[in-house]
Each structure stands twice: as structure tokens, then as C-alpha cells.
Amino acid sequence: MSQAEAALTATTAPEDNGPRPRKPGNPRNPLWTLGILRSEITTTLRRHRTYALLAVLAAVPVLIGIAVRIETGGGGSGSGGGPDGGGGPAFLTQVTNNGLFLVFAALAATLPVFLPMAVGVVAGDAIAGEASGGTLRYLLVAPAGRTRLLLAKYASVLTFCLVATFVVAASALAVGALLFPVGEVTTISGTRISFGEGLVRAALTAAVVAASLVGFAALGLFVSTLTDSGIGAMAATVGLLITVQILDSIPQLSGIHPYLFPHYWMSFADVLREPVHWEELSKNFQLQGLYAAVFGSAAWARFTSKDITA
């Protein structure tokens, strides 16, 4: 109910039986769009569930940091990964020597499952959750139109992507700085950059990771418009994620791999090369843009034409 209330308090729209055709000569207040957007973002981010998801995400770097710290026996140099160094998530071996690498290691560890799962929960719940809670029709009472409501929902999901990624990165940076030495950064090409530039690269990496989730967020939003069950939409979205990830790991299907949304996710590591290798990164962005366009417009087609019964 809180969402409907927030939407209603954010506007002074009169109650009506449905969205009305706009009266000519009564231009919309441009701040209006921001109003619905702001209310959507705050309701998304202020939910207890969101706090819980963010807390889980923030815990991942803490766990990795403590595990690596214990494993290396109190900061002894070298031989970080033990005899089988190079196993596990990328960048783990560098963490002992430079805490900043915990940011990259944590992002590499959370990107395949944790981050998209959290995004899938939020995206899948965006429309279907309102429908199953019975609040969707109240949201539509406001004369914003379904398209703008959908856009506001998508924008709030994307905001969550960004917030979630930066929560992981910030937590990793804090833990890394606490447990390990920080200083000049060695890129994976073997060249050195200053710690300041390393921080810039870390922020860039987090932004790239957040952008990698754009396509999946649109997919989740589309699934969310298909059903009136919030749980169903979340489960279907996360299920899709896992299915696609399995498809992406079957070598016999290499022909379709470049078109699967997680295929270029790990390309964020290319930010750490010197110079930055943009080829796969740009492929990733194009692919995410394509998914956003296709599933965003599919969500629009579905949502603007469906009967709202709940």
C-alpha cells in the first residue's frame, strides 16, 4: 500500500475512474514526471527487502576479504592463492598485495549470480508485485499514463542496479583498505598506475558492471508485466538468468553465445588493462542496449494493452 500512497502524495491528481485523456491547453508540469520517478525510486530503495538485498551484497566482499586474510596468515607477502593460485574468482591472487583489487574480486564474484539475482528480484517485482498487492490500479489512477509509470519503474530498477553495484564496490574498498595494504596499482597488463587512477578505474569498473545489468533489468521488467504474481515474476526472472547462464557455458552452443546477455559480463576486467581494451566492452554495451530496446518495448506493448484487474 505504501507505494500507492507515495504515488498519490507525490501528486495532487484528482481521483478518477481511470487515466483521463489530457485536456488541451493544460500542459503537463515537467516536474510531474520527476515526481512519479522520485516516488518510485524512494519506494524501491526504502523497502526492507531492498535493505536486506544490499546487506547481503555488502557482506560478500567482507567474506572474501576475511577469507583471503586468514588464508595468507596475517599479511605474509606472496603465494596468495596457495599451490593452486589462479583458481576461484579473478583477481583473488592480487588482493593480498593491494586491497583495491578486492573491489574487482568482489565484483567478479557477485556479477555472475548475486547482483543479477538482486536485480531480478527488484525488476520482477516492479509491476507484478504491485498487481499482486492490489496497488497497481491505484498507481494508474494518477494521470501519468502507463508508459510513464513503466518508464519510472524501469528507471528505479536501473537506479537499484547502480546502487547495488556501488554498495558492493564501496564495501569492498573499505574492507580492502582495512585488511590489506593499498598503494600503486599494477594493471593486469603489468604496468603501474597511481592509486588515484586505480580508484578511477574501480569506479569505472563499477559503472560498467551496473551497465551490464541494464539488459537483464529490462528482461525482468517484461516478465513482470506478464503476470499478476510478484513471486512468480521474480522466480521466472531469476530462472531465466540461470538458464541463460547455463546456455552460455555449453561450448556446443557457441554460435548463440554472443547474443546471450551475460556473455560479455566479465569484460569489465578489460578496464584494468593498459591501455583499456574497449572491443568487448563496447560489444557488451551494444548487447545490453539491444536487450533494453527489445524487452523494454515488449514490456511497453504488454503493459499498455493489458487489462488491469488487480
Binding site: G80, T96, N98, P181, T186, R192
Partner: peptide, 8 residues
């Protein structure tokens, strides 16, 4: 230019 990273 290459200098071995610290701890490598």
C-alpha cells in the same frame, strides 16, 4: 617499463 608488482 616493467617493475615486478609488490608481493608477486
Amino acid at each position: 617499463d616493467f617493475t615486478p608488482p609488490k608481493g608477486a
